[in-house]
Amino acid sequence: MKRGRLALALLLAPGLLWLMAFVMLPLGFLVVMSFWSSSIFGTVPDFTLSNYRRFFDNPLYTELLLKTLRIGIITTLISAVISYPIAYFISRQSGWRKFALVVLLFLPFWTSYVVRTFVWLPILGRNGAINQALMSIGIIDQPLEWLLYNEGIVYLGLVYVYTLFMTLPIYLSLEKVDPRLIEAAVDLGARPLDIFLRILLPLTWPGILSGGIMVFLLTVSAYVTPQLLGGPSGIMFGNLIAAQYLTGNNWAFGAALSVVLAGVVLLLLLVTGRWVGIQQVFSGGRS
């Protein structure tokens, strides 16, 4: 018994230390710093609520936060709609075809997402592939300006970069569904839509949720994609935070914004989590 506990502690130690050193400490520091004060002379320890007051006093900040959450939710929904058919298709394949398709699924992760975001510029830009092609065949005389730097293009970029984080867990949960259950449902008179709604969807719900949480978290904290593709009108909360550190030199306010974002996201997950049965993600599908 004692030996077992010691072994357990030793086995857990590396992971716990890692979490403490690189997750809990920085997070704690962030919270502490959000009560400090920044000025042109630097950020100094303090205990002030002025950073939070500044956030709540200016409605632009709240609006940006709401917009960011909206983008996060819509991106997650679009990703689910795109991912499910892909995952279903791959799960129905067999042999080397399935293997090849799963490898293809991972392929985009082999390059940095910054690069993957950048490639949209030569496609959609003023002198990009689409404009060149349309002009050369005479459909347009002037390059289309609205292809880049708007909110819509931010959705495109985010969905493109993060969808696969959803496809993979959905694929894995579809793989776990016993095909004989589908046969049994067909035998009992289920049509394709019934099978999807009553068998596949409930049994793969944990996969959809875990993928959804992943995409949502990555999206609401995105700042490279909106910066590169969205321009001024595509700006998200992440850009606001980044600006405090990189250009505004207002680390304390940046910390407060980060804490607000993290707090709101956590609250959102807790509230909607109850409603959609988030505990299934951690209990393997049994409610």
Binding site: L181, E183, A185, P202, L203, S287
Partner: peptide, 10 residues
């Protein structure tokens, strides 16, 4: 009635 019953687990 299937060999492995195939009851719906959910």
């Amino acid at each position: 009635i299937f060999q492995h019953l195939a009851l719906f687990p959910h």
